[in-house]
């Protein structure tokens, strides 16, 4: 037992250490790819709390992402407030909106496809509102003022700091999910996912915990928004609130395995390189690489309908 535990930890420690020293051995292009793997793994892990564990399928996490990006950027742009502080304010703004969306949706008993479409609509409402707000830059978005190498303002010279920030974000979100998974609230989440009625019969206030799940997911997702804004130094409503953001976030979890701790990470480690590889193989000429990407998504659904990670788990429990 103990040996097993050590060995299990060994492989995690090995992976952890490799990733920790990796940026010094790879070029900036691969650093960028790794940053995006971590970044999406983080966002997808946040999504996983609400949609994977609690089973409330969100198509609108872009709402929280955009709020995080806009809050920190607007505060920095107008008041020169460091995004390090702004990102926490953004997280609380997203938390408030998240709790509101959760409260409204679950108070009226939205479920499944209805909840999914409602979240999509909320994100779209925010996108259109920001598009029409001149204070927020409107369609012209916000170009974050360049300050050079200013770590206190979340601006760095190279990519390595971003690499570690995104890495820490991914690891800490996974730890948070790990803790939630093993806590009382996590059991409630899973109980709600499996069968809401019986969870209620056992005395779980399903509505309350679903709202909590939305809040946690919103709060954490907002940090990703600030990271995005500081990494690209430019945001506009379509880039941050657009449906494609929500889709990109959830695809990682779905591919990897919804409601599993490793799912979002594995999904992200597959999807981001996959996009790069298809573009690499088919070249930038006609969109064949996008076709291949779409086809691969379809094939995963048909042959691994629970995601890659559970598929492997199933295979191995069978063979061993």
């Amino acid at each position: 037992m103990l040996q097993e535990a050590v060995k299990r930890h060994l492989i995690w420690i090995a992976i952890f250490l490799i990733l920790l020293i990796l940026p010094f051995f790879i070029g900036t292009y691969l650093q960028h790819i790794m940053i995006f793997i971590f970044f999406y793994a983080y966002l997808s892990q946040c999504w996983n709390i609400l949609s994977g564990y609690t089973g409330q399928f969100s198509l609108g996490n872009a709402a929280f992402f955009g709020l995080g990006a806009y809050t920190s950027s607007v505060l920095f742009y107008y008041f020169n407030l460091s995004p390090w502080i702004g990102m926490f304010i953004g997280a609380f703004v997203a938390l408030a909106i998240g709790l509101f969306i959760g409260y409204v949706s679950f108070h009226f008993g939205l479920k499944e496809a209805f909840f999914a479409l409602a979240t999509l609509a909320f994100a779209e409402i925010l996108r259109i509102m920001f598009l029409n707000m001149p204070v927020m830059g409107g369609a012209q978005g916000i170009l974050i003022p360049l300050k050079g190498d200013a770590p206190l303002l979340f601006q760095f010279d190279g990519k390595i700091p971003f690499y570690y920030i995104s890495f820490i974000m991914m690891v800490s979100s996974t730890i948070i999910v790990y803790i939630i998974e093993r806590s009382k609230i996590g059991y409630y989440f899973k109980a709600i996912h499996q069968n809401e009625e019986s969870a209620e019969a056992l005395g779980v206030n399903a509505r309350k915990y679903k709202i909590y799940a939305t809040g946690i997911s919103a709060f954490l997702t907002a940090f990703g928004g600030t990271f995005y804004a500081q990494y690209f130094m430019y945001i506009d409503p379509n880039l941050t609130f657009g449906p494609s953001v929500s889709f990109d976030i959830m695809l990682r979890s779905i591919i990897g395995g919804v409601g599993t701790l490793a799912g979002p990470i594995i999904g992200s480690f597959i999807l981001t390189p996959l996009g790069e590889i298809t573009r690499e193989i088919f070249g930038a000429t006609s969109g064949i690489h996008m076709m291949a990407y779409g086809a691969i998504l379809i094939l995963v659904c048909l042959f691994m309908p629970r995601g890659v990670y559970p598929w492997f788990r199933q295979r191995f429990s069978k063979s061993s």
Binding site: I11, L30, A262, I266, I270, I277, E280, F312, F316
Partner: peptide, 25 residues
């Protein structure tokens, strides 16, 4: 030992993708 190979497997898969990338580049 039971879950050891599956972790290795899933990790290898992603590693293969990344190494594949490195090669191409």
């Amino acid at each position: 030992m039971k879950r050891y190979p599956l972790l290795k497997m899933s990790f290898t898969l992603s590693l293969v993708l990344i190494i594949g990338l490195c090669f191409i580049f």
